[in-house]
Design a protein around this nucleic acid. Sequence first.
RNA 1: CGGGGCGUAGCGCAGCCUGGUUAGCGCGCGUGCUUUGGGAGCACGAGGUCCCCGGUUCGAAUCCGGGCGCCCCGACCA
Length: 560
Amino acid sequence: MTRLSNYLLPTEKQAPADAEATSHKLMVRAGLVRQLGAGLWTWLPGGWKVHRKVEQIIREELDAIGAQEMSMPVMNPAELWQKTGRYGLSEQFTLADRRGAPMVLAMTHEEPVTFHVAQYVRSYRDLPLILYHLQTKERDEPRPRAGVLRTREFVMKDSYSFDRDAEGLERSYQLHVSAYDRIFDRSGLEWYRVESDVGMMGGSGAHEYMAPCPAGENEVALAPGYAANVEVASAQAASVQLPPALEAPQQVHTPGLTTVADVSEALGVSPGALLKAYPVMVSGRGLVLVMLRGDHHVNDIKLANALAAEARPARPDEFEEVIGPAGFIGPFGVDVPILLDDAVAAGGYVTGANEPDRHLRGVQPGRDFAFERADVRRVEAGDTVNGHSIRIEAAIEVGNIFKLGTRYTEPLGATYLDEQGRQQPVVMGSYGIGPARIVAAAVEQYADERGISWPKSIAPFDVHLVSIGKANTPERELAESVYAELRESGLDVIYDDRDGGPGQKFADAELLGCPVRCTVGRRTAESGEVETQTRRGREAGSVPLDGAAKAAADLWRSLP
RNA sequence: CGGGGCGUAGCGCAGCCUGGUUAGCGCGCGUGCUUUGGGAGCACGAGGUCCCCGGUUCGAAUCCGGGCGCCCCGACCA
């Protein structure tokens, strides 16, 4: 029984003043969620229905690959996290129980799940295992934002695979790829599976599932047959016109010109004909000079991966003595290791001269300075992959899959005896999905000026039945009977039985965004027809009053 | 962590600079009548710790100090 006259769906004409993202505005306006505090959101009944529909899709597809659902506590003894070295992370909520024992609120569940696996798994016969749960996560995010998109408390589906070896992990990983592909397809999202950074977790492979939308916090590089997080993307750079080569570097006067734009303009060459020098301090190794084309940018994640170490930009006081004055540094005559970006083609470039107000023309890598090569630049729109131009889109990460290896199983002692009786560490994978982000991404991707337009698989209701006219009228009687029929047909129906004007009811229906709207009013009584409208495309139609529910169900089924 | 902004009724806002009746407007809400196919009309009405604490003052939403909360941009983000 879902009658709008008695259902908590507080719609608003105006979005909260502090809302920026479309999904934030619309989910609040449609009465689906309300904020309790920074990064803390309540899901109201309508919103929670959507969330649960997403959860259900996830359950079905994970169960289908043999994953087993369980549930682990949000509150954990700190000891577990101390063992894995994850106690005291800045995003971790901590507390103490009445005896003063330190506890943590889980931000993910590698520790508890591995604890149990370590207890249970003895033999190779106990593996593989895939375990999952849908559980609240707590993270003290530095900056919660965009409504439900980045919160401090949220439900996550996290699954964990436990295998005997790398090949087993690969199988579990591929099972998740197939399940995830189906989950995001069924959710009705536009999505990409992209290569992602394995970060400092020491994993051996990772992908992220990205849903393009304007409020997204990530960027993905896309081309036919290619999709990668910009953090790790590689592509062929567009070539650049270089001036004729010189016999030797030649000094030019560039007073006060410290930026690529200034120098290229003053010398009449394109920015790509410059080599930009980016001095970094590499942990455990000291100063390194990164050189890349003037029109390119350093990608710090790719740089850290290329160096296999953390790096940070060097301060002037760290490089001026050894290299040259800030704004005029270059690779010529410098006694510092040089890392040259892969996109720098052979030829003569303009670089800093390591003297104030001076640059050099015609500096050739190899001839004029020694270097090591690495791909450390951020890809740019217009770069190519296999001849196809890439584009860069904002996207929200809705899921990830990660080959963890033994990062947690070793410290927590999850081992088994193999066929030869040797003790081996269990090999682990972890796999997350944020249902709330699926919901928000769906809102973002399909909203129009009237409101939300849900994919039919996750809409809060299948059909929004609008009754026009006062209570105790023949048309209201008709609406009541259509409502009863629709419910009997198995559809999930919200019935607007309020005493309100038609404009208000239609506006609310379009704001809420259920795939099919049915209208019953005086016209219905006169014409013997129930009017229908699909939310997506707003296509109007009508079905005979006699058998209206079945016809509406057929219409619903016919939608993509 | 750096930068910016905001806190006044359920939502959106004005008032604050330049202190002074009973703190106001739109939407929403209640009652009554009219209205009922695209956010209705009239009338009456309810609803406020003006974020909190302290200070200045005869008097503070308004000025000063401290605190808290929230948002945006950046940094960060297993």
